[in-house]
Design a protein around this nucleic acid. Structure first.
Lengths: 196, 196, 196, 196
DNA sequence: GATGAATGAGTCTTCATTCAT
DNA sequence: AATGAATGAAGACTCATTCAT
């Protein structure tokens, strides 16, 4: 079955399979076999394309981060107001929950593992800071610099906290949307509180 | 070496060693050997007292939950005002970070694992609901029922979110205290916003 | 609880517990703990009285052999005819099955193990030869020497074969008695065939 | 080392190694390592082909049963007389002893274990019943139904008994042949006794 | 005389990696 | 390009033995 140009296809197949496996079994119980089986490929292919399990794990995290970033960029245009932009940030973050339930569990597994894996921790930090800076940037248009920083910090924590509790309690779709509404309401209250 | 009355001592030794090991290596890399080595005991003793690794893991989670609960109870007296009680709840939750840095990382590992372990998930839910009901109960003295529920939900998320971000960014002591202040400030703003 | 003169009591307790454990779990799954638990004693006592598990196993086999021997001696008197004596030999061997069902399974386990344990093999051979010589001695009164030897050999095999098939098929009491009758009938047919 | 079509080869290698190991060390002392070492393969391969030690044990028993069955079928043709057929049954059963001394000890170990292992017991019963029905079928051509049943039962016991005593006494080749002759003589005496 | 806490070697099993095809 | 057979280190668990009490 030697075909040319299969690389991007195979890589994505394996990343998708990794997300599914981590979601279903957890990071601990995810093996090279559980992944390759879900992908419908052989186990050897993982080392071929990702130089081992660890490489695939990292590539998967990078893919998730990129997806989140893209989810925001797609929403924002040049005519977007700061308030709208903030709402989009919230939406993009909760979209992790809605679009694909798998992604959610996977994300949390990677977070925990990042405590003990420098490579994952670096990636995790990029994501965390991006959320903060996106928020800070938007708030800055609506309030002074120090208030914007404070609002961004609080808002980032609120988003992560609502999201975390929703995931851990294995909430259903309605509860996810409820959390999203709470987050948006909180953004508005911050604007009202600190906004000029 | 056989002594009588060693059971409670050994059990606590092993639980402490488990917290240390999970903090240092992560739940995934924590083995029966890494634990027994830290405890200065043999590996066989774990099966003897906890009927296997899983039993020790669960006992450790139960211990952490009990500690958190006790941390709150110790602070609260009959003369505590609702506002003070809310502050104590915040403090008790952030004390996880201050008192023992190990506990923090351990906690997160268990959270992630609880997605794939029914026993751990049950324990995790007990904790999550306890935070919510403690907050709701205190807010209820200061505002109407529906506002109190909303405030408790938001506040629980804020505490978890701030705590999570502090842990994941491997913050130092000063940042932990900064987060605690943010949480307390948020409690006060909720009281001001919804309070009668 | 230090008492004097407990040795014979404890030894028998442990031997009985060993028979029970081997019958219930098999020789492979019989541990120092399964035995001591059945005996209602501590595990350490085994090393104390039998210098380890192996010593207890051998003592148990020796006890079973002695029991079998005694079962025959009790039946035989000076006035017993050769024919009666042969019937008693059959009865004594099948009594292993009737008196105590446990003994049966235990016996087979020890036989198998005797293939790989010189000590057990020696004991097993004593038993095997005793059956043969008991039979040969009795047949000798009824026929010439070479026929008696042949009859003894065939009869010993028939007894063991019937007994083995009864045990392996997990037969009930009725089937055991049926086998005993077959064995006795075979003894009579041998006497008729070769007897003067 | 990965080659295609190795599965049947590897499976047989491992089954042969299991027979050797059980013969040499006994079932109790046969480990995944003792087997894989004899096979000249790694220990992991056992789980790969047989999903664990237990699977290999069962496959080995099944192989032994099949071999015994085949040993009989090869001898019997359409022109075989009932008497000849009975002789072939005896021969096939004693061939276990002659062809491969290992098989013998292995067989006894499995018998003993079958008392405590439902899977093995089931297989053991298949074999036991097959011997009986083969004998009963052949005897039926030579005598009435009830006599044939009795003859088959006695004959099966005699074969197993002679075989067992030969194995347990660690007899040499000559003694094995002597036992086979005794068994054949017994068959003939049964035919003479009950035959029309 | 008796206990059972503690040990640690040994067992089965899992699984990431390698590599011949 | 892709497979999956094979490896072997590492994991959890078992259990006979030891020994302080």
């Amino acid at each position: 079955m030697p075909k040319v140009g299969m690389e991007p296809v195979r890589r994505q197949q394996l990343i998708d399979a990794t997300i599914e496996s981590v979601a279903e079994f957890g990071l601990q119980a995810t093996t090279i076999n559980s992944i390759s089986k879900k992908a419908g490929l052989s186990s050897g292919i993982i080392s071929h394309y990702f130089a081992g399990k660890q490489g695939l794990i990292e590539a998967t995290v990078r893919y998730l981060l990129t997806s989140l970033k893209r989810a925001l960029i797609e929403r924002v245009t040049t005519t977007t107001t700061p308030q709208q932009r903030l709402m989009y940030i919230v939406e993009a973050n909760f979209a992790r929950l809605q679009q694909q339930s798998d992604t959610t569990k996977t994300w949390l597994s990677f977070w925990a593992q990042s405590m003990h894996d420098v490579q994952l921790h670096r990636l995790q930090n990029v994501n965390s800071r991006r959320l903060y800076s996106n928020l800070a940037c938007s708030f800055r248009s609506l309030m002074n610099a120090s208030d914007a920083k404070l609002a961004a910090e609080l808002c980032a924590a609120m988003i992560d906290g609502l999201w975390l509790r929703a995931v851990l309690s294995k909430s259903d779709q309605d509860q996810f949307e409820h959390c999203e509404q709470l987050a948006k309401g909180y953004v508005n209250s911050l604007i009202k509180q600190y906004g000029a």
